[in-house]
Every structure is written in C-alpha cells, then in structure tokens.
C-alpha cells in the first residue's frame, strides 16, 4: 500500500553510500569588525538514497552551505569530501572545480535555468557533450532521461514552449545527465504550484533511491516539508538539527521570511556534537 506523503516522510529510507562529508567547515566573509561568519564549524554527513531539506531563515547560511558543497565558494576552514574524494582540506585539492562539478554534482534551480536558445534535448545533451560522452551514447542517454521524466514528447521544444513543470523536469534530466552522485537543488519548487511541487519532490525521491544519489534541497516551501527524508536546520551559520527525521514542521514554516525564526526556535540549542 502506498503511504501518504506525510507518513512516508517519517520513515527514514535506508542509508546509501556516504556522498557528502563535512568536518569543521567554516566560512567567513570580510575581516575585523566587518567579518561575517556565514558557516561555523559544520559537521555533516549526507547519504545517497535520501532527499535532505536544508532549512533556515534568511542569512542562516543555507546558500553558503549549498555553494560550499557545490564547490562554488571556498570554505575558510575544515575539510570536505564529496563522493569519497577529498576536495577541500584547508584549500582546494582539485584545480579544475568546474570539471569536479561536472563529474559529481547536478544542479537544479528555482527557475529551471534552461538555455533558452536550445531545445529540451539539446539542454540535456549539453552536459554530456561537456563531459565528453560519445555521440551515440549521449543520444541514447538523453532519450532515456526524457522518457524517465515523462517529457520525451517535448524533446524538440525550446524552454519557452514548455510549462513550468515540464521545464523543471527537463532541468532535472539535465542535472541527472552525467550520473552525478550529489544533486543540489536551490528552491526547486518555488515557481511551481502545489501539485507540481509535490510531483517534482516525489521525482527527486525516486531519483535518490534508484541511483543512490544524495539530493540536497534548499527550500522555504512548506508544501514539500512533509516529503523530505531528512531536514537539516541552520541558524546563524550553525547546524541546529542535522539528524531530525521527523521535521518540526510548524517551526520550520516559521522560517519563511526569516523574521519569525529566532522566536520560533528559542527552544533549540545547537547540537553539533551529535553529528560527529
């Protein structure tokens, strides 16, 4: 029997392979009196097979953490392993970060970010071309992905001809193209209505389970909270609740806009030691 989303979310799926391992990751901007600590001593393990929600009020460090895991910004301290490879340890361990992203990480955006002058097929194909896939294999992979995401009939359409939900599915296909083990999604449902938002998250859950992929979703979208397998709460750059399996949804909803967050979380205390 299929479980309703809220019930299903309370059952943590089995751990897959460890895909992200952060140890003591910090990030600050500026110096002296202008110094801002965006991330403070973050210890976090994320596993394949799960969709993890990264929640917190504005300025809590969600985007900075997403950018750090995505190798877009360099942490100030700590170490970071992605899919078993040490990529940061007081400095980048790889010189070509774009190649690293191409090999290990898929990105999903709030507004799909498909290239407007390419068709859906070409948008997905682009990643495979960049990764150097042979033409025949790339063609087959694109066809499989569009079929998997049920947009194979829209392959020749340009993004402007796609609905919001279709465009986001094509964007997910692009994120999956090079078989990444980590998917970073930045507010992937913010531009979708409730029904489509649920479909997209269910799709990401399926992707996570079937491919042993760690899917990390930054969101303020309360309609998908119940669908997340794990919630990581951030406040003032620190982890508040990295291991929660049943998210404190009513309080997380208070994250919207950021203003209500500190009061709503007055009872929380950082539990960093629990993640070590």
């Amino acid at each position: 029997m299929e479980l309703p989303p809220s019930r299903a979310a309370s059952l943590m799926p089995p751990r897959g392979t460890k895909r992200v391992e952060l140890r003591g990751v910090s990030k600050h901007f500026g110096s002296g009196s202008a110094r801002v600590d965006a991330l403070r001593d973050i210890d976090l393990d994320l596993y394949g097979g799960r969709v993890v929600g990264l929640l917190g009020p504005s300025g809590s460090g969600k985007s900075t953490l997403l950018n750090a895991i995505g190798c877009i910004i360099e942490p100030s301290a700590g170490s970071m392993m992605l899919d078993g490879e040490l990529v940061y340890d007081g400095g980048w361990r790889r010189s070509d970060l774009r190649r690293l992203r191409l090999e290990k990480i898929g990105f999903i955006f709030q507004f799909h970010n498909l290239l407007p002058f390419l068709t859906a097929e070409e948008n997905v194909r682009l990643v495979l071309d960049l990764a150097g896939w042979p033409q025949a294999a790339a063609r087959q992979r694109v066809a499989e992905l569009l079929d998997y995401l049920q947009v194979s009939d829209r392959g020749h359409a340009i993004p402007a001809q796609l609905s919001g939900g279709q465009a986001q599915r094509v964007a997910i296909a692009r994120a999956l193209a090079n078989e990444p083990r980590i998917i970073l999604a930045d507010e992937p449902t913010a531009a979708l209505d409730s029904e489509r938002a649920v479909i997209v998250i269910e799709l990401l859950r399926r992707v996570a389970r079937e491919n042993d992929t760690a899917v990390i979703v930054v969101t303020h979208d309360e309609k998908i909270f119940g669908l997340l397998d794990q919630i990581v709460l951030l406040r003032d750059g620190m982890l508040v609740s990295p291991e929660a399996t049943e998210p404190p949804l009513s309080e997380a909803i208070g994250a919207r806009g950021g203003g209500a967050w500190p009061a709503a979380h007055g009872g929380f205390s950082p539990r960093r030691e629990e993640t070590r």
Partner: peptide, 16 residues
C-alpha cells in the same frame, strides 16, 4: 549573465 553562470556551474570550461 544567468545563462553563462549556469554554463559555468554545470561545468562548461572557459573556452566554451
């Protein structure tokens, strides 16, 4: 700008 940023993010090299 956004398209170029996206290309960089998904791994496109500078020469592209």
């Amino acid at each position: 700008t956004r398209e170029i940023a996206t290309l960089k993010l998904i791994g496109a090299p500078d020469r592209t």
